[in-house]
Amino acid sequence: MASVKLKNIHKEFNGVKILKGIDLDVNDGEFCVFVGPSGCGKSTLLRIISGLDDASSGEIEIADKDVTHADPIDRGIAMVFQSYALYPHLTVRDNIGFGLSLAKRPKNEINERVNTAAKMLQLEALLDRKPKDLSGGQRQRVAIGRAIVRNPEVFLFDEPLSNLDAALRSKMRLELTELHAELNATMIYVTHDQIEAMTMADKIVVLNAGHVEQVGTPMELYHHPKTPFVAGFIGSPKMNLFEGQTAQEHGADIYGIRPEHLTLSTQTGKWQGVIKHIEHLGADVIVHIQVQALGTLVARADGDFAVTTGSEIYATPQQGREHFLSK
């Protein structure tokens, strides 16, 4: 297994700077997730690690070897694409075994390894089908099988679940986590979905506009966001962020409080406001409150908390849950 080290990676396309100096260590066996808004350069960074694209400058080490200028096949990586990218003219068996047959492995070895991978992913019954006769989830599994079978040191995933429906996605999240535990391989996973990042990652790398905002475990990012961007990006609904007086009282630029860390009351509290909008999620209810001094405040309350639009309400931040951030 292998660690991945990125040193000062820059990338520009036609003079436009897309990545602006990325430094990153991914440890051996870690499940590392890159998150960030669309267009921040996640895929670009992953492609640079894979060797499909070259960095404009900077160095890449995989398993302590400098692979900055190595071909993809010499990097010990496998990649799963968002579009699955299965070869339409080959059966599932040949899709999974394609890399091995290119490497001129003996037939029976290929067969054995394909079967092992298929078993791990419950694809045994589908081995003789063509990709067009598979469902989206099955195709995704074939794509993962194609990665597993080569025994790579590092797995790269580019939004592998984003073409699946919500139910299947949460099932696959679990399967991927189990797979990671089973293979104990280093995995780098790109997503713009912070739920995927929170649920699967050992380490989250938050990217924004071509640079790393913060690196940490999911809970570190949740409890101790270092920048307003990370504070707003991690967690759902998004953290309430306010500039102005409240922040200045504490010597910060921005004051933040998560919706789930506000206590609501009809009698008394720190901020008084009017309920503008209510979203019932069943277990929870999300309340949008118009507060004179602040603006809109979003709070999460218990599902059976009885509120109506237009009524008055008080919100109080919980002790020790407030965030004071500088720009």
Binding site: L52, M79, F81, A85, R146
Partner: peptide
């Protein structure tokens, strides 16, 4: 889709392959 080319490259295919 270009992804197919890239998947093949990742699988170790030379350009002519």
């Amino acid at each position: 889709p270009r992804d197919l080319d890239e998947a093949a490259i990742i699988d170790g295919a030379k350009p002519w392959q």
